[in-house]
Design a protein around this nucleic acid. Structure first.
Lengths: 153, 153
DNA sequence: TTGCCTGCAAATCCTTTGCATACTG
DNA sequence: CAGTATGCAAAGGATTTGCAGGCAA
């Protein structure tokens, strides 16, 4: 699924830090590790909880989570999507580009890729003389499991 | 562009209010009127300013703006899109469905519709046994005008 | 007249910032 | 050792809520 090993990811991160005279700290390492390991979307708060759980001895503040997420996003190592009221979620950015199906009942996120849609987007941009830097496609609705639950209730 | 007249819109709104034992007030009317008249995206703050401008005598608080926008969104009379750090913007929902090209330099929003993408989305949903309720497609980048500015600077 | 709506201000929630201390390179 | 990073608490900004008075039905 992921096209980098953890070691390659860390190496890439260290390179970015070096280029910007920034430092490699335990906190930054752990944040990246959790995002890599679980390979799913986290809110800052969820990430904070997970770290508290797995590394109870590590002293880390929520401010560091926010600062590090911003740093990682600027460095394009992670990406974020907005969920309206639900806030912002982050995920590791080393997967091929993909879009999201989001279940409004249980919050499950299904990822998909579709070349046809990607190509069509380029044509649309061309028509408006628009230079696309990124895009975000979210399909909201009800997932397979929740549809079953609805049927039986 | 819009497929309802203002009168039809107000009638529809009054129907919704009546069904829910809610009341038709000057504040609610003005908010809807501005959204209809300008037919563009507003943040709650921008909407508040615009109303203060056009109706200086009308006493209205920002809390009412928020409450009314939430009400209108629940009633599907308006829709919102998220702009990450930049907050949430609302627009009247009585146009045919469309997606957005967003210029990250000047904030301009271009609307477009594309049947091919819509159809493809349905196929994807089918594949995952997912029931689509809505979707949101945003292409971020740099618009025609800003690209010119970049060239000459 | 009833009970929903409103403005106001206070309260919340999420995120960022200032500062003194701790740590990396 | 210099300069960056951290935790903590305070500050900030956006949105929501409680309340007493105002207004629509």
């Amino acid at each position: 699924m992921l096209n980098y090993t953890y070691e390659e990811l860390i190496k890439h991160f260290k390179d970015i830090l070096k280029k910007n005279s920034l430092k490699y700290t335990k906190q930054r390492e752990v944040i990246l590790e959790i995002l890599y390991k679980y390979n799913k979307h986290f809110t800052p708060e969820e990430l904070y909880m997970q770290i508290k759980n797995e590394y109870p001895k590590l002293n880390i503040g929520i401010a560091t989570i926010y600062r590090t997420l911003n740093l990682l996003e600027e460095s394009k190592m992670i990406t974020s999507i907005s969920f309206g009221q639900l806030g912002k979620k982050y995920e590791i950015a080393i997967k091929p580009h993909h879009d999201h199906l989001i279940c409004d009942m249980c919050g499950t996120i299904i990822e998909f890729e579709d070349e046809q849609i990607e190509n069509r987007q380029l044509e649309i941009a061309k028509k408006y003389h628009f230079l696309i830097k990124s895009h975000s496609l979210q399909l909201h609705g009800i997932c397979k499991e929740c549809r079953k639950k609805l049927k039986y209730s």
